[in-house]
Design a protein around this nucleic acid. Sequence first.
RNA 1: GGCCCCGUAGCUCAGCUGGAUAGAGCAGAUGACUUCUAAUCAUCAGGUCCGAGGUUCGAAUCCUCGCGGGGUCGCCA
Length: 586
Amino acid sequence: MNVFAHVEGLIKTALESLQADGELPAEIDLASIEAEAPRDKGHGDLATNAALVLAKKAKMKPRDIAEKLKDRIEANAEIEKADVAGPGFLNLTFRPEFWQAIVLSIIDAADAYGRADLGGGAKMNVEYVSANPTGPMHVGHCRGAVFGDALARLLEFAGYDVTREYYINDAGGQIDVLARSAFLRYRQALGENICEIPEGLYPGDYLKPVGAALAKQYGEALTEMDEAQWMPVVRVKAIEMMMAMIREDLAALNINHNVFFSEASLQADGRERIGEAIESLKEKGLIYQGVLPKPKGHDDGEWEEREQTLFRSTEFGDDVDRAIAKSDGSYTYFAGDIGYHYDKLQRGFTHLINVFGADHIGYIKRMKSAVTALSDGKADFDIKVCQLVKLFRAGQPVRMSKRAGTFVTLRDVVDEVGRDPVRFMMLYRKNDASLDFDFAKVTEQSKDNPVFYVQYAHARSCSVFRNALEAFDGLDTSADALRAADLSKLTDEGELELIKLLAAFPRLVEGAARAHEPHRLAFYLYEVASALHAQWARGNDSPQLRFIAQGDVGLTVARLAMIAATRQVISSGLDLLGVEAPDTMR
RNA sequence: GGCCCCGUAGCUCAGCUGGAUAGAGCAGAUGACUUCUAAUCAUCAGGUCCGAGGUUCGAAUCCUCGCGGGGUCGCCA
């Protein structure tokens, strides 16, 4: 059950009954009325702004409306009291039974607790990572990868039919560079002394296995060919091996895409996706031949006027129109992206999300323009930007340079600090704020490190169950036994606080899914963990508050039910972040 | 110069799409381990929400103009 939605329902019903009785004008719209958790505990469990929102439309004083509403609301058996407060808030306090029942509903729902139907099964495409297949992924890719994956999990939980997609940039000039670099390694593998890797080629050792594989497969045959002949062969092999490496890196982070979409495939095997997409834009009058103005802020003298094929992205709020063909007539990268998104739309996706790195911010407007144009504004398209990750080691920034070989790969980070801490820390920040990542802090196992803090709360919940079995010989802790618990024994303020927090989970999932902000889950889980640790510690001072109540099986089982509900929320939440919920911390 | 992010406690950051007296963690001070793993908890202290206008019952949040930091800017990908 979503408590907030439930209460909003109660409020609307009450308002409608006021309208029916002529106490409120019948014609006013009740849409923007909300229930929310007040910051201050003195303001009840939930508050509604109904009277404030309606006052103007109804031409009545807010407090007068609130008073009328109060009487109707208090008729509900679940409500202990309703108070008119401040400028016209109505603060609702529920009877303990209401909260106690939440525990039962969580145990009943199990894994499904918090699941939402925002999406209604709509097809959602989440594209993330999409790193060039020219080498191993570095740390910068890590954040987008984790973010995209968590977002996909969240949206699935919120009722979308999600496809996780990776766009392979395997058609551009950098792939030829990759192939030439691999070819050099191939000659090296055949025993040739290649000296230094020339400027402009990829120097990394990771291409040596590609050279070796080519040597094994083709022997010296490729050396007999000229570049035009060996190029396609080497290119395919290099991309295949680079992608295999990238997939392995992603798997180390527990990230698995459903679709790896090749840029080259847009124009291969008889497909003409780019042409079709451009044709469709042409029909809308959005393609023309023209000259772009000189960009400002750059005063290299190399700029010259050129006539190009342009997309009228300024129609949709972009600063300038964008080129889709180079002067030699071939397509630009942007044209490929237009074709790619056209393809996504053709595949029936009504919702699209792209996760970009900070360096692609300037690309957002043209991409949105293109999707708006292609879908006639019908597609729901969002681009999420992950800002930079700054690495620190013991407080000092880590300098990275490809040339000096001090380049930190994604794999290095995962191997050093572990999958769970990496994932959690990447999500423990808004995506559009830059993030400082300190190796020392992330590996620390203390409350300074939110990953361990939350995982420890889960492990602690599990340990309570283990200890309960020792304290009460033959105790039945099955879900059925917990369902039968006498929850009215859960009357401590701390216990009710914890349950109220658990009750907020469904609303939180909805909000995070709607805003495309998985970080909210991470912060929420921290709060739940904190409430659990606090309640645990109260048992140190007040033994009667211990989860395992000496000699009182009934009370113990009731508390175990509450712990089970807490554990459920933490494990569901961690699962949405792709982080393990361990039974024990050792 | 254009565009996009960011600016909240000494530090690192939340703030649920406009709610009531702005919250956490770290750092600082004080206290709690013969325990249900103290890998934790409690209390105190800490604020010009960058600035100035505007919108309204109500602004850290929305709009405008500034200031500061970062990113990016015609055929690369």
